[in-house]
Simulated scan of single mutants.
Amino acid sequence: MDLVSNKEYLSWYKEVKSQIQNAQVKAVLAANKELIVFYYTLGGIIFEKIESSAWGDKALTQLANDLKNEFPNLKGFSRTNLYYIRQFYTYFNNIIVPQLEGQNKNKEIVPQSGGQLVKQLVCQLPWGHIKVIISKIKSPNEMMFYVNEIIENHWSRDTFELQLKSNLYQRQGKAITNFSTTLPAPQSDLAKQTIKDPYLFDFVTLSEPYVERDIENQLVNHISKFLLELGKGFAFMGRQYHLEIAENDYYLDLLFYHVKLKAYVVVELKNTKFIPEYAGKMNFYLSAVDSLVKGTDDNPTIGILLCRDKNNLEAEFALRGINKPMGISEFQFTEVVPDNLKSDLPTIEELERGLNLGNED
């Protein structure tokens, strides 16, 4: 069927052209929210017409050519982008909006449909992020999780795709913790969602055999990637953080401050399977930080035990009766360098000079 001379197509094309003109696309392109809402509307027009006609996808090709001739200086109307615009509409028009726990605590308007969701929330995302969502995410709950994370953390598209590839949704809030009995709500909920399991340190480059200090050094060396994996809100305070207790010296592997939790966070690395004794040692460290470091306005210090492996039931038993908030997670890393290249890795002294950590030991 030749659409160029088809009266029905020409009438429909005139409607599409009118929509673009009425939306003042040149201005719309400068305002992301208006552009995304416009794409959703245009996607509905395209979807409904193609569904009710016998044209098929060749209508997208013809429409793209006609729009290019009509609006030569406007981008965004290629056949590929028109395909995504149609998919954008079908994705959110058919989605059942999940009512997530805590979504309405601040009395904001909760979307009741996919269209409302686009106008209230999704329109805050760049178009490139939306194309990734509709191409790779099927679950409404997972979609909502990433939409909120992108908005809250201002993720670039590369960072979003990295977090998606690492299965952040499946890992977030999955650690074994005792937060529900050691922290008041809503801090306990926020703390639980802050910790993931497992942590993926795929930026660490080590060869076996390696020790905990090697891992710690690498995490500090790649501190920006380490902080990205930890999540938003962590501020790095130091490695091998020194505490003096009863004239004895103790050193915390890594110390952070979480700005949303308003609490210090002690991270201990164990290059072994979790054993209950680790929880007792962490409880000791948390008591020490609460007494020697924590300010009067800070919330109780939180501990994160990172182990190479753990038995969840054993971890749960280990946390029973402990009155300090802590979580237990596994960590993984996959990249390995040959032994003959290990000497090229920076030394502890080089790391300290590069990060201006000083002589914390």
Rank of each mutant, 00 (worst) to 15 (best):
7 K>Q: 12
12 W>I: 04
12 W>D: 03
13 Y>Q: 07
14 K>A: 13
17 K>E: 12
18 S>E: 14
22 N>G: 15
25 V>L: 05
25 V>F: 12
27 A>T: 07
29 L>C: 05
32 N>Q: 15
35 L>V: 10
42 L>S: 09
44 G>I: 04
53 S>F: 01
59 A>M: 15
59 A>I: 10
60 L>F: 10
81 N>R: 11
81 N>I: 05
91 Y>T: 09
93 N>F: 03
96 I>M: 10
98 P>V: 02
105 K>P: 00
111 P>K: 02
127 W>H: 08
128 G>T: 10
129 H>W: 03
130 I>L: 12
135 S>H: 07
140 P>D: 15
142 E>M: 15
142 E>P: 08
144 M>W: 05
145 F>N: 02
150 I>L: 14
153 N>V: 05
156 S>C: 05
160 F>R: 01
162 L>P: 04
163 Q>V: 06
166 S>P: 05
167 N>W: 04
171 R>M: 07
180 S>P: 00
182 T>V: 10
184 P>Q: 06
188 S>P: 03
190 L>F: 02
195 I>F: 03
199 Y>T: 03
200 L>I: 15
201 F>C: 07
206 L>I: 13
230 L>G: 03
234 F>E: 06
236 F>E: 00
238 G>F: 01
241 Y>W: 13
252 L>R: 02
252 L>K: 02
255 L>H: 00
258 H>N: 10
264 Y>R: 02
268 E>S: 14
269 L>K: 03
270 K>N: 02
279 A>L: 14
281 K>V: 11
297 D>A: 06
298 D>V: 01
302 I>A: 00
304 I>R: 04
309 D>I: 08
311 N>K: 15
313 L>K: 14
323 N>I: 06
328 I>W: 05
329 S>T: 12
330 E>R: 02
332 Q>H: 11
333 F>Q: 04
336 V>P: 02
342 K>V: 10
354 G>A: 08
355 L>P: 01
355 L>V: 09
357 L>Y: 09
358 G>P: 01
